[in-house]
Design a protein around this nucleic acid. Structure first.
Length: 267
DNA sequence: CTGGGGACGGGGCCC
DNA sequence: CGGGCCCCGTCCCCA
């Protein structure tokens, strides 16, 4: 019984959904790729540094009467005078880093700011919501509107047609759909995978390649996650600890087994 | 029974 | 926007 319970096998179509035209996107890795497949090594720690590049929005700030520093939120929205208003380029997970950090300026303060800086603001409702066409005199007003209303309604508007899942961005949805269509097929055994790198990891099971080595015992692994789990075995204090007896385990599954075996049974 | 290895999954992040 | 990669996690098998 394969452990890949979610992996669709094309040669076993008893439960295969009818994905129809999507199957013609199948990617078959040529065998020569197996030979030239690069041997990965554990990356140096310096590439793991997280540097957040903050790209300033300069398109509209020059048009704003009084740009507010706190308006530099990643919310989309452009003056209607700049041309057609495009749908919000909803960024994926990164947006969550900024959620809740929006400007605390109230609507009243906003209006005051607007009037002080632009006497014509009332007659010129320049900022139009791309979703509901409602107009605002200030960008921050539009931004707040979008965040509180329209974006909130459209935030999960990308639904998977194969299951119940919903996503905040089209890219995330497309990535998820690959888990249904499984376009990457192993030419050796016919197993299908959602992403090329999953297939490459699977190909190592055929080639025997083990590019990830333990620095302590030189044992090699084909999968980085398995190396990570193995590294736990070299540690005196394991990552997962039982809340009752403080015993530590290298894997969560082992901790769960331990708990189910009775140590942590609630009385 | 326990610990560890093998294989694989999904979401998120970065380029 | 897509690809590559990483991290975290799960499940199964075996010594």
């Amino acid at each position: 019984m394969p452990r890949s319970f979610l992996v669709k096998k094309h040669f076993n179509s008893s439960k295969k959904p009818n994905y129809g035209e999507l199957d013609n996107h199948t990617v078959i890795i040529s065998p020569f790729l197996y030979e030239r497949y690069p041997v990965s090594v554990i990356p140096p720690s310096d590439i793991l540094s997280t540097v957040t590049a903050y790209t300033p929005i300069t398109v509209w700030t020059s048009l704003l009467p009084s740009p507010l520093p706190t308006d530099r939120s990643p919310l989309s929205g452009y003056p209607s005078s700049l041309g057609p208003v495009s749908p919000p380029p909803q960024s994926d997970g990164s947006s969550k880093d900024h959620s809740g950090s929006e400007s605390p300026i109230s609507d009243e303060e906003e209006r005051i700011q607007s009037k002080l800086s632009d006497p014509h603001a009332i007659e010129a409702e320049k900022f139009q919501c791309s979703l509901c066409s409602k107009t605002y005199s200030t960008f921050s007003g539009l931004a707040k509107h979008k965040q509180l209303h329209c974006d909130a309604q459209s935030r999960k508007s990308f639904s998977c047609k194969y299951c119940e899942k919903e996503y905040v961005s089209l890219g995330a949805l497309k990535m998820h759909i690959r888990t249904h269509t499984l376009p990457c097929v192993c030419k050796i055994c016919g197993k299908a995978f959602s992403r090329p790198w999953l297939l490459q990891g699977h190909i190592r099971t055929h080639t025997g390649e083990k590019p990830f080595s333990c620095p302590h015992c030189n044992r090699a692994f084909a999968d980085r996650s398995n190396l990570r789990a193995h590294l736990q075995t070299h540690s005196d204090v394991k990552k997962y600890q039982c809340k009752s007896c403080s015993k530590t385990f290298s894997r969560m599954s082992l901790l769960h087994k331990h708990e189910e075996s009775g140590c942590c049974v609630a009385h």
